[in-house]
Nucleic acid binder design. Structure first.
Length: 116
DNA sequence: AACATGACGCGTC
DNA sequence: GGACGCGCCATGT
């Protein structure tokens, strides 16, 4: 079994696109699922560089502590906060309870929904 | 080529 | 919880 030559950034976009509404997951785990362990920082870059016309649920990606990674009072922070709350995800002090909302993809989803 | 910068993670104090 | 330090590595200067 060999991996298809999907560009690293594209692999990340594919995983992010699978995050269900009402769920969240950390940058590090996205990297793991994309086959890029230890590359959390690359996930943030991939989201920033994603084409504006690509409808990714970027707001469902938070850091490993369950917190929004944008600085408070920035437009991006506020937008992410509103998007999360619009999906009935509780956010207190910029933090989400991972034990309640973390996305834990099942094997079938990963095997059949990802192109690599 | 060298250095700085990140929407991060993890261990330690 | 918070503050540091270090690891990570593509990008930009």
């Amino acid at each position: 079994m060999t991996q298809k030559p999907v560009l690293p950034m594209a692999r990340i976009w594919h995983v992010v696109a699978l995050i269900p509404k009402g769920k969240v997951i950390s940058y590090g785990k996205i990297a793991d699922l994309a086959g890029l362990p230890g590359r959390a920082r690359y996930v943030s870059r991939a989201l920033k560089l994603a084409p504006a016309n690509m409808p990714l649920p970027w707001h469902r990606v938070i850091n490993s502590q369950g917190k929004i990674s944008f600085a408070k009072n920035t437009p991006a922070f506020i937008e992410q906060l509103q998007l999360l709350r619009s999906e009935d995800i509780q956010v207190n002090h910029g933090r989400v309870k991972l034990c309640e909302h973390e996305w834990r993809p099942d094997l079938a989803t990963l095997v059949f929904e990802l192109p690599f």
